[in-house]
Every structure is written in structure tokens, then in C-alpha cells.
Amino acid sequence: MKLRIAIIIICIVLMLMVTSVIDSFNHNETDIPEKVDVIIMLGGGDKGRMEKAAELYHEGYADYVIITPESKDIYPQSTEFAVELGIPEDAIIKEYEATSTYTNAVESFKIMDEYSFDSALVVTSDYHLKRSKLIYDRVSDGQYDLKYIAALSEDGEKWNERSYSDRIWFSEFYKLWGYWLGLYNFIDEPDTE
């Protein structure tokens, strides 16, 4: 009897592990963009994220773009690059505090509340989309209408076409597990003041 229970538990654990690994290769289920109050461009990655945010801005999906975090030192997430791509400086809302995907969400929602925004397109790299959606949905708790838009690399490559795709996969795999387990609360919790 105990052997049978042990075998069943081992089979369940193995099935969960296999399912988890298979699911980890599917990162880029992008939504169809629609008119919203603001576009949120998550910092990190290469120029592809800002290029996608600018494309959506020029197609009229929103009148404002939040850069989270904005950085003069990191060109792909700088106001300078956004302006170069044709986004007017008065349409850019700069956020300086975020240090992770979790704090991107927290800080973005503070800005959305400040501006009375109810909807947003969240733009990030294709490999980062699943984790961004997980945490933005969890932090927003249904308060905002959010759509998630995948950005390809600045060269137009999908994450799995890059020469270092194995490193991208592994990094997102363990970070996604950390986010599923709520470890972002211990790793990078923003000040509550």
C-alpha cells in the first residue's frame, strides 16, 4: 500500500515537472493591441521594447508612454531614445524607482492612479511576457484593463532564435518559478511609505 502511494506521488511530481518544462518554452502569447489610456514600456532588454512602444504610440493606441524605469545611463530605456523614435517628451511619463518586474508593476500602478488611467498596454520582450503578465495581473488584482504586447529584439528575432536562447530560457524559467511562489515579496519589496 505504501509503495503504491509513493509511486503515485512520484508520478504526479514527474508529470508536474515535465508540464512545467514544456510550458516554460511558451513565453510570447501577445495580445491584440487596443486603444488604452497609456503604454507601459518595461525597462530591460534591448531597443526592441522601446521601438515597439513607439510603434504602438504612433499607431494611436495611447496618448502617453510610461518608461519604467527611465534611465539616462541605459539608452534603450531613456527619454532621449523615446524622443528619437518620435514620442514627444510631453507624452512620456518617467518612473525612476523600479528595480524588478514586480516593482515595475507597483510603480506603474501608482502612476496610473495618479493620472486616473484605467487601461494600459504593457510592452516587454517576448521572453519576458509571461512573467510580466503574471506579476502585473497579480499586483493589479483586476483593477485595470491590461493587454500584454511582446516586443521582438532590435534585430527582429524571437527569443528562441537568438544564439543565447538557452540562457534566456533558463533565466526566465527559474525567475518565473520564483514569481509563482511569491518570492518577489522577499527579494525586492518596495518601500511602503
Score class of each variant (00 low, 15 high):
K2C: 01
Y184F: 10
V122F: 12
T192A: 05
R162D: 01
D46Y: 02
I87G: 01
E55N: 09
F186H: 07
L42D: 05
E34C: 05
L134K: 12
K158D: 12
D31T: 09
K175T: 15
Y127R: 09
W177S: 13
I67S: 02
Y102G: 04
E89L: 02
S108Q: 00
F81S: 01
D155G: 01
S116Y: 06
G43T: 10
A105D: 02
P76R: 12
S153Q: 04
E55H: 03
I40N: 01
C11A: 15
M1R: 14
R4Q: 11
I74H: 09
Y64D: 08
L3E: 10
Y144I: 07
W169Y: 11
G48R: 03
S163N: 12
I187F: 11
S125P: 05
W169M: 03
R167V: 00
G45Y: 06
G156E: 02
V21K: 07
I39F: 06
D155H: 14
I10D: 02
R49N: 03
S125D: 13
Y115T: 00
S71C: 13
D90G: 07
Y179K: 12
S119M: 10
S165M: 11
Y136R: 11
V122K: 06
E89S: 08
K130R: 15
D188F: 03
K147M: 03
T192K: 06
P190L: 04
G156K: 03
I187T: 10
P33K: 11
N26Y: 12
F25R: 14
S165D: 11
K130D: 14
L14W: 00
D191R: 11
E84L: 07
K110S: 09
I12V: 13
D126P: 04
T103L: 08
A6E: 05
C11N: 09
Y102D: 04
M1F: 11
I135C: 12
L56M: 15
E80I: 08
F109Q: 04
C11S: 15
I66E: 06
P69T: 14
V106C: 03
V18T: 13
H128S: 08
A120F: 07
A98P: 06
I149R: 09
